[in-house]
Amino acid sequence: MSEASGLAAALAGIASLKTAEAPDAKSGCQGLHTVGREAIVEVGRVFREAGYMLEMLTALDMRAAEQAMHVVYQFNRFGAPDRHRVRVVVPAGEAVPSLADLFGSANWYEREAFDMLGVRFDGHPYLVRILTEEGADYHPLLKDFGVAPAAAEEAAGG
């Protein structure tokens, strides 16, 4: 328990970190946080020192509603889950500091987020496309890529 409270204290020391009220069980998380992008490396270091792993990293295209991309980091520890979802809101087209120095897994996760959604990560050692074909010039998971769902349904005859 002391470990968890140590983590909470360390997280409270980060100025731009805002922690939401206790999330409900459906979210699958024990803690939801939002942090400014300049502090994400600090947050990563806190979690790393507490023995947490970077379980998931992805991005969301929220440009329609907020003109911003959300980068979602999910930290978890081994054993009984203590899952913390940390969100960084970044204006479209701007970069986020990379966690690749802290977590080995961040290297590929960030490449994937770059490939799929075009989020750039500052300080990444090798930020190139990972999944799409060579020479691709698109970021497929952006909402304005491809056909809108309604149009797709029409085209499929549905």
Partner: peptide
């Protein structure tokens, strides 16, 4: 995997 807009 075929649908309008499939890129991959």
């Amino acid at each position: 995997f075929k649908y309008p807009g499939q890129y991959a």
